[in-house]
């Protein structure tokens, strides 16, 4: 038995039909073509599928697509404003904060959520906030630096 879901993704009204057990991650990727969120584990342990649900950071693999009805979803595809990168995106390129890049969308969405509520985090706060976003390439060093550089840039702006 399929259900119809009407929701908002990155400010755009969208509608899709899915089975009730489908996750928001699968709906975003397979029904809406938004493949920026990745499935690294499917069990909330890696953060590669991070999105926001009504502004709150969540793992989209741990949300049913049905729950999105009437809610507001934010994904990596909505982070840049048109062709202008978000300061976090620019900082990740400038500071080489990605190697393979598969965790990067989730980390950017998570870091954006952090800076929205804490514009001047300590390194330790960045590290604990991002503890649910696994990166296997970088050892996190350059990621923390990039988040701090973006935070500084955003405070200046």
């Amino acid at each position: 038995m399929s259900i119809t879901v009407s929701t908002s993704v990155n400010g755009d009204a969208v509608e899709f039909v899915c089975p009730p057990e489908e996750t928001l991650l699968d709906a975003l990727r397979n029904r809406l073509g938004l493949t920026g969120a990745k499935e690294g584990c499917g069990t909330g342990d890696c953060g590669a599928c991070s999105v926001t649900l009504n502004g709150r950071l969540v793992c989209s693999c741990l949300v049913l697509a049905a729950e999105a009805e009437g809610q507001e979803i934010g994904t990596i595809e909505g982070l840049a404003q048109g062709d202008k990168l978000h300061p976090l995106q620019q900082a990740f390129i400038d500071h080489a904060a990605l190697q393979c890049g598969v965790c990067t969308p989730g980390i950017l969405v998570a870091a954006d959520a952090l800076l929205k509520q804490n514009p001047e985090p300590s390194d330790e706060e960045v590290r604990f906030w991002l503890a649910g976003n696994l990166c296997r390439c970088t050892g996190y060093d350059k990621i923390v630096r990039a988040v701090q550089a973006a935070a500084a840039e955003m405070r200046r702006a």
Binding site: C59, L114, L130
Partner: peptide, 9 residues
């Protein structure tokens, strides 16, 4: 309990 993401839920 869990990560920041899990805390959201």
């Amino acid at each position: 309990i869990g990560s920041t993401q899990v805390q959201g839920r």
